[in-house]
Lab assay of single mutants.
Amino acid sequence: RRRVRAILPYTKVPDTDEISFLKGDMFIVHNELEDGWMWVTNLRTDEQGLIVEDLVEEVG
């Protein structure tokens, strides 16, 4: 499975499927959606939700 790491922190918009995260958080990518969004699991918090790919980098 594809893994990505947050390069910046992010605070979710209330009442959306987004998740908040810290710089350095690792995610497993489940689905890549339109307009650069990804459905992921945050490995630190075990939370699932949407993040935008501009805020993460690939992990080898």
Rank of each mutant, 00 (worst) to 15 (best):
E53N: 14
V40H: 00
L33R: 13
V13C: 13
K12L: 03
V29R: 01
R2G: 06
M26P: 04
L8P: 01
L55M: 14
T11I: 13
Y10E: 01
V52H: 14
R44C: 08
E18D: 03
L8W: 12
M26Q: 09
D46C: 15
V59M: 12
E58Q: 09
L22Y: 09
N42Y: 02
I51S: 01
F21W: 03
T16Q: 03
G49V: 01
L8A: 13
R1E: 14
I51G: 01
G24M: 04
E53Q: 14
V52W: 15
V40M: 00
G36D: 04
L33M: 11
R3F: 14
V4W: 06
D54L: 11
T11G: 05
P14W: 07
G36Q: 05
G60A: 14
I19N: 01
M38I: 10
F27G: 00
W37K: 11
Q48C: 13
R3V: 14
P9R: 08
G36E: 03
P14M: 09
V56L: 05
F21K: 00
P14E: 12
E57V: 11
I7W: 06
W37L: 09
G36W: 03
G49N: 00
L43E: 11
V13E: 11
N31E: 15
V4Q: 03
E57F: 06
I28A: 08
M26Y: 12
Q48Y: 10
V40S: 03
V59P: 06
H30E: 12
T41V: 09
L22W: 11
Q48K: 12
V52D: 13
A6I: 02
E32Y: 09
P14N: 10
V29T: 03
R1Y: 15
V29E: 01
E34I: 12
G60K: 14
R44A: 06
I7K: 11
D54W: 15
G60M: 13
E34S: 14
V59S: 07
E53Y: 14
L8D: 07
E18I: 06
E32I: 11
M38R: 04
E47S: 06
D17P: 10
W39N: 04
L8R: 13
P14V: 09
L55Q: 10
I51R: 01
V13F: 10
D35V: 07
I7Q: 06
V4I: 06
M26H: 11
N42C: 10
I51Y: 01
V4K: 05
G24S: 05
P9S: 14
E32L: 11
K23I: 11
D25E: 03
W39D: 03
Q48E: 10
H30D: 07
E53T: 14
E58F: 08
K23A: 14
V13S: 14
T16L: 03
V13M: 13
D15G: 13
L43F: 06
D17G: 10
V4D: 00
I7V: 11
G49F: 02
V56C: 08
W37H: 08
E47F: 04
N42L: 14
N31L: 15
D17V: 09
R44L: 04
E58G: 08
R44G: 04
L8Q: 15
L43I: 12
G24C: 09
P14L: 08
E34M: 13
